[in-house]
Design a protein around this nucleic acid. Structure first.
Lengths: 343, 343
DNA sequence: TCAAGACGCTAATACGAATTATCACTGGGA
DNA sequence: TCCCAGTGATAATTCGTATTAGCGTCTTGA
């Protein structure tokens, strides 16, 4: 076997096989162009030495010489393996890994990108984004300056989740929330509900904003009343009171974890779901919560988004241009928390 | 901002600042040795250009010149983000990420290491392990040849989970199963149980073997009878019958997922746990299963193992030598499935 | 007989940053 | 006048691989 001292280089192989480093490189890369010719016996000899020594090319040097690495960076603003939102992010990562494996790329998690104790930033004094051929951005809130800088520096990347322009259009794979929310509002209205409420921030990042927009457009189109009920600083109980006082018979909850809490609070006050109040959940919980209710709502195609993002990034790397923007549609979930309006 | 054309190099910065590439490098690395002197105003000028252009050093080139990368590889034989055993592996990864973040390293997931459709291998024709400074091995079963080759090539690595020698001792951070199993057997014996059974393979990889060894040693030391009941090819019901027929009053189940199934089967046959049969679970489930029972057993310190493995790897990289081997002790879990023997 | 290609290989260079060796200049002391 | 120390910077080289341009020899076709 190899001595543990210094690692082998193509130069070593070349010396042993009695050829030049160039030849080793050519054999290694299996170049059989018309431009390049290696005698079969030479090729065999070099291959034999490579086999015997167990030589493998240094991928770092390779990256310096070529333009690529077959490394895709994954940047997350929170931990990649979080405790809190593990269940939410896992499907994205699953999709990313699957596709990366298919196209033969490794994944680099930028875990170092944090200035002591602070939030992660893509660009700190010693940014390592460039280690990868391109990168994937994951997380609900993405720093605008980071996005702008990525665009400005021409670093290939795809955001998972739709992003507003940051000086220029941002490449993304997002979930198409508006039609999904619209479909839910539609069904709800058809079941006789006339006053609906959107429970959640409806703003802050693109994804809540998109849901909210879908809601506003839908209630306008269908001709029902749509209220916005923020959640911050109120208990689920208080929230329920507000909603009841406003004569709302169906609520669409931005964050399913809130939907769970609200449903439980309803139970405690003797309100039945969906008998007295229909509760729709818009997506998947981003906070860990035991979901014991089968909510009507929709499914965010997280795994598919992860896969597609990798595919698009690979294309970007291949042809070097364009700004892919895709929205994947959310599948409706039948569930059991939507019923005809009884009031 | 930067033009999207080509990316900036130190040469560019040098040109703009009117100095040499060397000077830029020296300023960038904040070298203030006696050997190296830069006039304050020159330093300031270079820094200003760097700020204005937003230049960051290419880590790949850097790595070629230095010896390190600040990249730790993570190799898993199954998917890093598995569907099936997500819950089992997650804590390890959590610990790894935490510690990597602290020491300022990025994590490289070797997702490419798969020959189409086959099992992942560390060494295929174009191995990429060398991209990282060192690597972590995760997974219950690790290929012996891969281990031997890692050792032979002098690649710094730490296995998470104890490994038998593979030609030479393997660096690892493991869970110390034998004392944990012994403690459980001890307690069980003190509660009057005289015939215990170990339910599981007890072999195959190191971790089941270690538990089995702990079991054998413990029953011998305590002076009770210890049976081995394999699980393969039998339903939980059949298994229960065997165990009962043998007059066993307490079982230690290697795989907690099996323990769940067995406990349910017991309930169906009117056997109470722990009234009629005590069921101890040795560790954490590696298959996804709703654990609705509070098993007596022990906790594998997975997060700590992940953390510690990164620490040890970092030390290995620092001093360049040694074969760290550590076993972390498992914390006993009181649970409610162990009771005095009534028979 | 001569030019044009086929053949098999290698020297030289690029990639971007880090390091080593060296250089030009100034001012002071002998 | 000469030497030397101190100062500030740079040219040259290194890391390991990939690519380009080209070398000399031998064949082929006109």
């Amino acid at each position: 076997m190899t001595s543990p001292g210094r690692r082998l280089t193509q130069q070593d192989i070349a010396r042993i096989a009695g050829v030049s480093q160039t030849t080793v490189s050519l054999v290694l890369n299996n170049r059989t162009d018309a431009e390049v010719r290696i005698a079969p016996e030479t090729r065999e000899r070099v291959l034999r030495v490579i086999r015997e020594t167990g030589y493998v090319a240094d991928p770092v040097a390779r990256r310096l010489a070529e333009r690529r690495n077959r490394i895709l960076g994954v940047f997350t603003y929170e931990a990649v393996f979080p405790t809190a939102s593990a269940d939410f992010y896992h499907p994205f990562l699953l999709g990313i890994e699957e596709c990366a494996e298919e196209i033969g790329c490794d994944l680099l998690l930028f875990t170092s990108a944090r200035a002591a104790g602070e939030r992660r930033r893509i660009f700190n004094e010693d940014s390592r984004v460039r280690l990868a051929d391109g990168c994937l951005l994951l997380g609900r809130a993405v720093d605008r300056d980071d996005l702008a800088r990525l665009l400005a520096e021409g670093i290939p990347f795809v955001s998972i989740g739709r992003r507003d322009d940051a000086g220029a259009p941002v490449p993304y794979v997002g979930a198409d929330y508006p039609p999904a929310v619209r479909a839910l509002v539609d069904r709800t209205a058809r079941l006789g509900h006339r006053r609906l409420a959107y429970v959640g921030t409806g703003a802050g990042a693109e994804s809540p904003a998109d849901r909210m927009r879908g809601f506003r457009e839908a209630v306008a189109a269908v001709g029902v009343e749509g209220l916005h009920v923020p959640v911050t600083g109120r208990t689920p109980g208080e929230l329920l009171d507000d909603v009841s006082a406003a004569g709302v018979s169906a609520i669409l909850v931005e964050e399913p974890a809130d939907a769970v809490a609200i449903t439980h609070a309803a139970g405690e006050r003797g309100l039945s779901v969906p008998g007295d109040l229909s509760v729709l959940a818009l997506g998947a919980p981003t906070r860990p919560v035991p979901v014991d209710v089968d909510f009507t709502g929709f499914r965010i195609p997280r795994r598919e988004m992860g896969r597609r993002a990798v595919e698009l990034l690979a294309e970007l790397l291949g042809n070097g241009g364009g700004t892919p923007q895709e929205l994947l549609s959310c599948e409706l979930v039948e569930g059991s928390t939507l019923a005809p309006n009884r009031s």
